[in-house]
Design a protein around this nucleic acid. Sequence first.
RNA 1: GUGACCGUAGCUCAAUAGGCAGAGCUCUGGAUUGUGGCUCCAGCGGUUGUGGGUUCAAGCCCCAUCGGUCACCCCA
Length: 433
Amino acid sequence: MSQQYKALQGFKDILPDEQPYWRLVEKVAVEVAETFGYRRIDTPTLEETSLYRRTSGEGTDVVEKEMYSFDDRPDKEGNSTNITLRAEGTAGVVRAYLEHGMFQLAQPVKLYYLSAPVFRHDKPQAGRLREHHQFGVEVLGDGDPAIDAEVIGLLYQVYTRLGLKNVRVRLNSIGDGNCRPQYIQTLKAYYQPLLDDCCEDCQVRFVKNPLRLLDCKNPRDQAKIAAAPRISDHLCEPCQEHFAATRRLVKLYGVPVEHDALIVRGLDYYSRTVFEFTSSDDNLALTGGGRYDGLAEILGSSHTPGIGFGAGIERIILELKKRGIQPPEAAKPRAFVVSFGKSAEFKDATVSLVAELRGAGIQTEMSYGGRSGKAQMKQSNASGAAYALLLGDNELAGNFVTVKDLQAGGLETEKKQVEVKRVDLVEFLLSGK
RNA sequence: GUGACCGUAGCUCAAUAGGCAGAGCUCUGGAUUGUGGCUCCAGCGGUUGUGGGUUCAAGCCCCAUCGGUCACCCCA
């Protein structure tokens, strides 16, 4: 083994054995999204760095220390653009919405994206990679709380259809530009006298991102959090109504939401509805999302409400495995061609048979490299193929194939074998079990 | 980014108190001529993550580095 090269830290190969999990998650996600009337969008992996800086917020960890940013090659004038690998899903979709004038379409515009790679320069650990993939949804152009409920209902259905019935859904409202600044003042006023007794992280949060004070897990600060003023009690009238309606409507989708006044989100653009889906037995967030009614304006557009989420596919798969949920097995070959001769004539007969069957859409395998007939039989068995197609002198001379049923039990070879004319072979393989 | 623990074959793991690096699984070949699964035999596969150091001798001790895991931070 000369392992000079390894995948980069925090980057992972998705090997063939893993793929069935991905196909399962993707299949369910697409089916549910389309049931809900969402259309797929794919946006580029690279965007201008300033897009993320503006939307996520200058003070956030993502922007400050986790983005993969670099200067693009300079143009003729020697100017280069600083660009960034996708750091989160929403910014690119909103950019595309504005760039392509989707505000001219019937509103709202309901979009989803699938397995989009997201890059963040964190220190890796279980469930946290430097490149991970997200399934996400964004709805733009209407602020109706029925949309908040719909988006959460959609996601919940994805999880339940995957068999993950124990996810926790926590919901909160963090207000809007009207009421949140006042609440933050109230919160800071509450914390100011307690600050000396707070953990170091909270001292930083107090300045950088006061809402996150409520997120602290340090035991010494829990009592302070419990007694802290709640945003829910400080929402302005419209935000209150929106939140009440969201909670009422989301229940109609059968989602067991909990109101958690301590849920705040990391990115600056969120407003009103925020939510998190977590696995029930630990704190690993499976999905985070929320409303971002001010985001389009940050990008210079007119007021455009929006809401969305990003669901980490790797974390969903981790959860599936933890729950012992198996994806459907990969398709096994229908036929495995076994050749009992080694001459060019046999090679040609084997390849032409394989080619013909594959041309007819029948999953067919063969052995490579001139192995013995016995070894080929072993391979055909290991492949899981339904039938071994035997080609020997007799078959070639008589223009037929001996079809052996590999799945039939028992020892009596004759009962499991039947001779089928070449012209009838495709039909034979397409019919039957 | 901070801290703790861990790195032996493709995978899962052994290796007494420093003393010739092993097993199971996988893979390949074979057990008489054109027939799988069970069984048996054999083979391939390692500079013990990498680079230094101590020692007659290092998988084992020391340092560094890379990677992994866990907690924090943050987040999906």
